[in-house]
Design a protein around this nucleic acid. Structure first.
Length: 501
RNA sequence: UCCUCGGUAGCUCAACGGUAGAGCGUGCGGCUGUUAACCGCAAGGUUGUAGGUUCAAAUCCUACCCGGGGAGCCA
């Protein structure tokens, strides 16, 4: 059956008409002879008013019995009401209770992370998750449209592989008919083979890292987009990454206003992130990191958050002083604010502990080592949009990176760092094309040469300059959404300690 | 692997050595325009597990289990 009911996001076309809505009860408020049902159908929310005097007994008891997340079919006339969420209201003429939900565990009040993650299959129904996952969908579609529009071929790289692409990361191992197979950590090498066959390709698929990372920036299973382009140099790859991200950002701003508002995302940083990404070399980034300007910036930041700390402490005291004679709803408001103040206070205390350490480690930074998380953050604080850092010391980069012909200490790699502390979302560069250089590198990195025989063939038969990069989907969505943690940007996050649900 | 914080009612938290409480949610009752509606009543607990100290442990100590944040590494 193809359902013939209306969806909440199309109610603007039906004002004054009778429609049927099907969905789930998001919230209910009642007084004598009236039920205000907030219906959720996946496209939006709509308040539906059931008046005892306007419906028959069956409809009234359906509304009466309906519990949170019960499924309902509601028929009624659409009216405009600016006070309501979504801007419309349904005057119900008949209601059918499709299924009465048991006591629903997720309430409108706050919940802890552990509880919510254990109920992820239900958490997905709430507003915030709706907004985030719709933005993820928009980002996914933007990426496909961007590459398809530029003549790229989408390819599916294998998920089971026999080798590690970059010896550094830990891989998930599995028994494979008496041999060892791994879950892929990158589709790049296979992407290069496809690029030599089709010119420009991109992969869009899951990747796996068995790193024991327990942070808000890590998943063990995440989605990566890896374009690979024959005849592109490093500059070409950087321009492509900038164009792709600009497209993602502008599409989200155009199509996801409702979602960004639910998330209370400050859109100014996104509006600035369309084009004009500064390119800075690793060496320039090191200079910025060690500069007096950066140290001064952090010092200013410390002063600012110390002031904020005092301000919110004062606000907290005021709330407590007024608490005694406050009305119940005021107390509740104060309580809610107090929780927020506590959370922010803890954050500030952690920042005040960390910032001096960050400055110190930045001061001590030596040319040739890799940036840590705090170094990246300090560098990006100097800019108001994504930046592209390029030409790194080859020591900590992958074996397949091409050396800079102008400076043999450097590899032609590049990273895109998102602003606002979101950090690395793209990593890539120009690939080495010379067979004997690659063979040396594989040996130098301690990788099994025989596993790369097929890869070496790409340098035997018409080797050409080529470049590519990998985009982390969840990190990108986290940045667009302006949210704190990666785990909310994928329907079912897989982390170190979580395989359920 | 290391550092750090936490585990009390279905949920979020309080009690910090002396009879375990509140709000939300749930149930019942009231209210014809509510916006996390509101008002009243009620039910709801071997304080993560196992030891130990004490006249007395949610509270102090030890070990373990579970989870959060971070380092390293990375997208």
């Amino acid at each position: 059956m193809i359902p013939d009911h209306s969806s909440i996001d199309s109610l603007s076309d039906c004002v004054g008409e009778e429609v049927t809505l099907r969905g789930w009860l998001y919230n209910k408020r009642s007084s004598k002879g009236l039920h205000f049902l907030v219906l959720r159908d996946g496209t939006g929310l709509c308040q539906c008013v059931v008046n005892e005097s306007a419906v028959d007994d069956t409809s009234w008891s359906a509304a009466d019995d309906a519990t949170r997340e019960s499924s309902l079919e509601l028929k009624g006339v659409v009216g405009i009401d600016d006070r309501q969420i979504g801007g419309f209201e349904l005057q119900v003429s008949s209601a059918v209770l499709i299924h009465k939900a048991e006591e629903y565990p997720i309430t409108p009040k706050e919940h802890g992370v552990d509880f919510l993650m254990n109920h992820r299959h239900l958490w997905l129904r709430s507003q915030r998750q709706w907004a985030i996952l719709r933005i993820r969908n928009r980002v996914t579609m933007s990426i496909h449209e961007f590459f398809q529009g530029r003549g790229f071929l989408q390819m599916d790289a294998p998920i089971l592989t026999g080798t590690a692409v970059e010896g550094t990361s830990t891989l998930f191992e599995m028994e494979y008919f008496g041999r060892t197979a791994y879950l892929t950590q990158s589709g790049q090498l296979h992407g290069e083979a496809m690029a030599m066959a089709f010119g420009k390709i991109y992969t869009f698929g899951p990747t796996f890292r068995a790193e024991k990372s327990k942070t808000r920036r890590h998943l063990t299973e995440f989605w990566m987009i890896e374009p690979e382009m024959a005849f592109y140099d490093l500059d070409g790859a950087m321009q492509l990454a900038e164009d792709m991200l600009s497209r993602i950002v502008s599409d989200a701003l155009r199509d996801c206003q409702a979602e960004l508002e639910v998330l209370e995302r400050d859109q100014e940083p996104l509006k600035r992130s369309i084009g004009g990404y500064p390119r800075i070399t690793y060496s320039e980034a090191v200079d910025i990191l060690k500069s007096e300007k950066t140290a001064q910036m952090v010092a200013n930041k410390i002063v600012a958050i110390e002031q904020e700390q005092k301000d919110i402490a004062a606000e907290s005291e005021e709330g407590k002083a007024a608490y005694g004679q406050a009305k119940k709803w005021q107390k509740r408001k104060t309580d809610a604010r107090e929780i927020e103040i506590q959370r922010r206070t803890n954050e500030i205390e952690e920042e005040l502990r960390n910032l001096p350490k960050w400055v110190e480690s930045a001061r001590q930074f030596e040319w040739g080592s890799d940036f840590g998380g705090s170094d990246e953050t300090l560098i990006t604080w100097n800019f108001d949009r994504p930046i592209i850092v390029h030409r790194f010391p080859h020591g900590f980069k992958a074996f397949y990176m091409k050396r800079d012909p102008e400076d043999d200490r450097l590899a032609l790699g590049m990273d895109v760092l998102a602003p606002e502390g979101y950090g690395e979302i793209v990593g890539g560069g120009e690939r080495a094309t010379d067979l004997s250089f690659l063979q040396d590198q594989v040996r130098a990195h301690g990788l099994p040469e025989e596993a790369f025989k097929w890869y070496f063939d790409l340098r035997r038969y018409g080797s050409v300059q080529h470049s590519g990069f990998g985009l982390g989907l969840e990190r990108t969505v986290t940045w667009i959404c302006g949210i704190h943690h990666l785990r909310e940007t994928i329907p079912f996050a897989r982390t170190l300690d979580r395989l359920y649900p």
